[in-house]
């Protein structure tokens, strides 16, 4: 089996403000999804979420407040899953809660150095 990086992207500006209860329900949805992958023994690394602010360093020491200065969607987190093919990895991503919230998942095979 190969490792695939799942990159979660969404438009942070368009993210709905959530009540604590909604946030808890959201956490549960993520845990159910990732737990389901782990139950298939196909989780390599649950990954992490990313903070919503950051910097983008360009050539010539040009620093921009990022990460969403140039594109609308920014990366909010990542996980690494195991699958035989790109199609299988995509299948695993299908229930990712980010899709229901208007975001997307990019599936990329990890090419080991």
């Amino acid at each position: 089996m190969k490792d695939f990086l799942l990159i979660f992207r969404t438009d942070i500006a368009a993210m709905p403000k959530r009540s604590p209860e909604e946030m808890q329900a959201n956490t549960k949805r993520w845990m159910d999804w990732i737990g389901g992958i782990a139950a298939q023994n196909k989780l390599t690394d649950r990954g992490n979420r990313l903070m919503l602010t950051g910097k983008v360093l360009n050539p010539g020491n040009v620093i921009a407040d990022g990460p969403y200065s140039e594109i609308k969607e920014s990366i909010i987190g990542y996980s690494i899953v195991k699958a035989n093919t790109e199609e299988e990895a995509t299948e695993l991503a299908k229930d990712c809660p980010i899709l229901a919230a208007g975001g997307n998942v990019e599936i990329r095979e990890i090419s080991v150095l």
Binding site: K28, M31, D32, I34, G35, A38, A39, Q40, N41, L43, R46
Partner: peptide
């Protein structure tokens, strides 16, 4: 059962085992 489910989710993230996968389901 919701609490048990969430604990199994966490357990599977720490360590996979067939029995935990089945009990989670």
């Amino acid at each position: 059962w919701e609490n048990i489910l969430q604990l199994y989710n966490h357990l599977l993230l720490i360590e996979y085992s067939p029995i935990a996968a089945l009990n989670r389901t």
